Simulated scan of single mutants.
Amino acid sequence: MLSEGAAIDIDEATAVARARAGDLDAYEVLVTRFTAPAHRAALLLGAGADADDVVQEAFVKAYRQLGRYRGDAGFKAWLLAIVANETRNLVRSRRRREGLWLRAAVREDPLQWEPDPAESAMARERRRLLVEQLRALDHRDREILLCRYLLDLSEAETAVTLDLPKGTVKSRTARALARLRDRMPEGVRGA
């Protein structure tokens, strides 16, 4: 059993080990630590309004599967792979090709200081064009770029999340970036 202050201070490996041993407080530490990235991943991968349900189901499945967790790429990547699978299942069942992940991608930080309205307008337009071109990409290209740049996952974490070899992640990322770059209007490419 963890004390209230210790629950926040334990590292990931310790929390996983304790959770495997049946310590629900330790699993709660993992849930607290990784709910936001899991929710963001679900949103960006297309869960939309069902993101909370996807994340909850992913945490339940992760808890049940803790015995299978090997720790190769870290708990976060392993959890996000479960989130990705749950989201794919949801999207497939709804028979939708386009998810609501773009809303999360274009959402601006309301606390961000914007010094120049002209710069802000240009940035919004560049963001709109980028999202428009991301939407037009093949779903595999979108997933790779989403994981690498919007979720800020490493190549190894992306490989685990999308269940791909690391080399495939590297080559698909390069190709997807080239395709995206080619789709962008000339004046926006270098911005």
Score class of each variant (00 low, 15 high):
Met1Phe: 09
Ser3Lys: 15
Ala7Lys: 12
Ile8Asn: 15
Asp9Lys: 04
Asp9Tyr: 02
Glu12Asn: 03
Ala13Glu: 14
Val16Met: 06
Ala19Val: 01
Ala21Glu: 12
Asp25Tyr: 01
Ala26Trp: 11
Tyr27Phe: 07
Tyr27Asn: 06
Val29Met: 11
Leu30His: 12
Leu30Thr: 05
Val31Lys: 11
Thr32Gly: 13
Arg33Asn: 11
Arg33Trp: 07
Arg33Gly: 07
Thr35Trp: 15
Thr35Ser: 15
Ala36Asp: 14
Ala36Gln: 05
Ala36Thr: 02
Ala41Cys: 03
Leu43Asn: 13
Leu43Asp: 13
Leu44Pro: 13
Ala49Ser: 08
Ala51Met: 00
Asp52Gln: 00
Asp53Lys: 08
Glu57Asn: 10
Ala62Pro: 08
Gly67Met: 06
Gly71Ile: 00
Phe75Arg: 10
Lys76Gly: 15
Ala77Asp: 15
Ala77Met: 04
Trp78Tyr: 04
Asn85Arg: 12
Glu86Thr: 02
Thr87Glu: 13
Thr87Val: 01
Arg88His: 03
Arg92His: 11
Arg97Met: 02
Arg97Lys: 07
Glu98Phe: 02
Leu102Val: 13
Leu102Met: 07
Leu102Lys: 12
Val106Asp: 12
Arg107His: 12
Trp113Asn: 15
Ala121Lys: 07
Arg124Asp: 08
Arg126Lys: 07
Arg126Met: 06
Arg128Ser: 12
Arg128Leu: 04
Leu130Asn: 09
Val131His: 15
Gln133Lys: 13
Ala136Gly: 14
Leu137His: 09
Leu137Gln: 15
Asp138Phe: 00
His139Pro: 14
Arg140Leu: 02
Asp141Pro: 13
Glu143Lys: 10
Ile144Cys: 11
Ile144Val: 01
Ile144Ser: 11
Arg148His: 08
Tyr149Asp: 14
Leu150Lys: 05
Leu153Tyr: 08
Glu155Pro: 14
Glu157Ser: 06
Glu157Thr: 06
Ala159Gly: 05
Val160Cys: 09
Asp163Ile: 03
Lys166Met: 13
Lys166His: 13
Lys166Phe: 08
Gly167Pro: 01
Arg172Asn: 10
Arg172Tyr: 02
Thr173Trp: 01
Ala174Gln: 10
Arg175Phe: 00
Ala178Pro: 10
Asp182Trp: 00
Pro185Asn: 11
Glu186His: 04
Gly187Met: 04
Gly187Glu: 11
Val188Met: 12
Arg189Phe: 02
Gly190Pro: 08
Ala191Tyr: 00
